[in-house]
Design a protein around this nucleic acid. Sequence first.
RNA 1: GGGCUCGUAGUGAAGUGGUCUAUCACGCCUCCCUGUCACGGAGGAGAUCGCCGGUUCGAAACCGGUCGGGCCCGCCA
Length: 434
Amino acid sequence: MRVLSKELKTHIGEQVTIQGWIHKKRLLGGLTFINVRDRGGLTQVVIKDKAEVEKLRGLQIGTVVEVQGALVEEPRAPGGAELHDAVIIVMVPVTEEPPVEIDKPLSHKSDNLDTLFDNRVIGLRNLQETAIFKIRSELTRYIREFLYKNDFVEINTPKLVAGNAEGGAEVFKTDYFGKEATLAQSPQLYKQIMVGVFERVFEIAPAFRAELSATTRHVSEVTMLDVEMGFIDGHKDVLDLLQNLVFEVLTRTYEEHGDALKKWNAPELTLKPEFPRYTMAEIHEMYSKATGKDTTKELDLTPDEEKWICDYTKKNEGCEAVFATNLPAAKMKFYHMDNGDGTARSADLLFRGIEISTAPQREHRYEVLVEQMKKAGVNPEDPGFVHYVTAFKHGLPAHGGFGFGLDRLAEKTIGLANIKEAILFPRDINRLAP
RNA sequence: GGGCUCGUAGUGAAGUGGUCUAUCACGCCUCCCUGUCACGGAGGAGAUCGCCGGUUCGAAACCGGUCGGGCCCGCCA
């Protein structure tokens, strides 16, 4: 029976078998330490028999082995137990030296990210890298648990879609049996349609963005959390949902994965259950006053303003997550609800200096929606939109939701400098492999 | 798309005109080492200094081009 590294404590005194990858060899003459990596972590094997060590001569890190031995309690060993009198069986020999080291942290300097991603296949075996994606997996789990608890249904919507789904972002076009299809830049229209079915839905899926952006916060394939909720009693319900989700997910992550976060020198979490809310106009004003740089004419927050307001609320209100509300109507999408005063019923959630979510109330009134579509130059009869408006014609309640950048959340939670570091195999304007 | 930057063994770095026949650390190979855990010690292999051209008696270094990256702005999530 195979025993995993995380189960060692419950098998002390037994003859056990472990399987995994050679992670590190330390030869001390008459004594050799070998760390074997499996899905739970590392197991230390102690070998005194020279013949057993010789079996590994010429074999590199990454060799897949089975090791049989006696599991003994040993306070000096990591995990408090180690394997003695080991017999090694090589299952998959590896003679090729790994291109990167896996037992020491890899360089994440921006100049070296290209090498990091070129060697991603092996680099991800580095436990420091693994920690990123374990945390990311847990973030995703906590999000799901929060949403299930709040009666949301998880859905999957098409990623191959007709026409330009919602305007705004650049789309990838592709051949679709002789017709033109685009890769979905968001599940926006479908998740609204699904409000008419389930009231509360969410999806975690890739979205494709073809902007020629080359920054630390953009990739061309992004993992989005999309949430949509019907029967809301105003925009506040949407913001509260998003706030409660982020508060719970981050609090749990910091409680349950403090060690891994410490490995990455993640900043302390400074969060309150109620996130500060400022209108965008207020933030422009505060920022302009504080820095002397006039941004009051800007339609959006500048990257510097996003950093500034998060620092400001962290210092003055004890919360590094903050809402920027009442986004300007001039930048409004046709499916947003217009406040009628030059602003839209939409808000951005900023966390640690970056926008991680946009949370608008939708325009659910059929006639108003069609009007707004026409104003935006979108034809409601178009094959990409005709089914969308049908849902409204047959009754959608007041609703709202948010798109949420999961990659950015993982990046900022861990305190990484570039969104790509939080993505297994990132896609950007220069990278399509691995 | 605009601006600014960077490119030296498998990896990370040092070297800004001659002392470079290119330095260091990790990794790799050989040997020593019985409690390592970023083990330690001795030795060794490994780089046409991204590529092309130019300036110069002399170029890893200076100039031009080119290819490949990065950062910021814009766009966007």
